[in-house]
C-alpha cells in the first residue's frame, strides 16, 4: 500500500536572465492512497509534478512537508525498508553499459538482498517475458533504448517488490513490448501488488488503471476511476480534462 498525506515539495532554481533565485512548487499538498491489487494512473503534462511525486514514493527525494508510507514504512523514518518494498522504474534510470543483462541483474539482486542465483533466475524469467532472452549475455553497450528499458523493467521487478512505481514505463518501447509491459502490470495487480504508473498515453490509462489522478501545477485533481472522472468533467475522453484544466490555469 502507498499512502501520501499532504505532501509538499519545491525546488529553488536560478533564472539565467534575471540571475534571481526562483522557487518552484512542484508538489502542493498531494494526498492519495493506492491499495494492494490496484493500479493507479498518474496523469499530467510535462513539469506537472508526476515524476517528483513518484521519486518521493521511491525514496529518491524527500517531501518538505507531509509524509509518505510504503507498505507501512515511512520513507523518512524507515527509508531502507520503504525502498526495499518498491520496484522503481524511470527513464532517468539507466543500466551499466559494460555489463551483460545477466551480470547486471545478478549484482542488482545482491543490492536488493536477493541471492544472486535466485536473482539471475528471476531476471532471466522476466527477460524471457520481455522477449530479450537472446541478449542476456551480450554487453549492453550496443543496446537500443527499448532494450535498455526492458532490462530496467527486469531490474525493478527483480526483488519481487510489493509496490511497483513506474514512471513512463512504455517510453521507447515498440507497440508489442508496450503491450507486454501493460500485461505485466495487470499481472502484478492480480498478484495483489500495489501499482502506481505515470504516463502521457491516455488509452493505456483507460485500459489498465483502476483509479486515476491528474496532476496539474503540483495539485492533484480527480483521484477516481477513469469513467467517474469523465462523468464528473462531462467530457468524452481524458485529454479533454487536460484541456479544461489548462484553460482554467490549473485551478
Amino acid at each position: 500500500m502507498i499512502q501520501l498525506v499532504e505532501v509538499h515539495k519545491g525546488f529553488t532554481v536560478k533564472d539565467k536572465k534575471t540571475r534571481k533565485k526562483k522557487r518552484i512548487e512542484a508538489v502542493r499538498g498531494i494526498s492519495l492512497t493506492v491499495k494492494p491489487g490496484e493500479i493507479y494512473g498518474l496523469l499530467g503534462p510535462n513539469g506537472a509534478g508526476k515524476s517528483t511525486t513518484l521519486r518521493m514514493i521511491a525514496g529518491l527525494m524527500h517531501p518538505e512537508q507531509g509524509r509518505i508510507e510504503v507498505c507501512g514504512a515511512g520513507t523518512a523514518t524507515e527509508p531502507e525498508k520503504a525502498r526495499g518494498a518498491v520496484g522503481y522504474l524511470s527513464t532517468d534510470l539507466n543500466v551499466y553499459n559494460r555489463f551483460t543483462p545477466r551480470e547486471f541483474l545478478r549484482i542488482f539482486g545482491e543490492f536488493q538482498g536477493v541471492d544472486p542465483a535466485v536473482a539471475e533466475r528471476r531476471g532471466l524469467h522476466l527477460l524471457e517475458k520481455l522477449e530479450l532472452s537472446d541478449f542476456v549475455d551480450v554487453k549492453m553497450e550496443g543496446f537500443s533504448s527499448g532494450q535498455r528499458q526492458k532490462v530496467s523493467i527486469a531490474r525493478a521487478l527483480l526483488h519481487d517488490p510489493r509496490v511497483i512505481v513506474f514512471d513512463e514505463p512504455t517510453t521507447g518501447l515498440d507497440v508489442l513490448t508496450a503491450k507486454t509491459v501493460l500485461d505485466l502490470l495487470s499481472l502484478m495487480r492480480t498478484e495483489g501488488r500495489t501499482v502506481i504508473v505515470s504516463t502521457h498515453v491516455l488509452p493505456m490509462v483507460e485500459r489498465i488503471c483502476d483509479r486515476v489522478g491528474i496532476i496539474f501545477d503540483g495539485i492533484l485533481h480527480g483521484d477516481a476511476p477513469p469513467r467517474e472522472i469523465l462523468q464528473r468533467w462531462n467530457v468524452p475522453a481524458l485529454d479533454e480534462v487536460f484541456f479544461a484544466l489548462a484553460a482554467k490555469g490549473g485551478a
Binding site: 531502507e80 525502498r83 522503481y88 524511470s90 534510470l93 539507466n94 543490492f111 531490474r155
Partner: peptide
C-alpha cells in the same frame, strides 16, 4: 551522467 546512480540509490542499500 549515465543515469546509473539513481538505479543504485533506488535499492534498499543505505546511502
Amino acid at each position: 551522467e549515465r543515469g546509473t546512480l539513481l538505479s543504485l540509490l533506488s535499492t534498499r542499500m543505505p546511502r
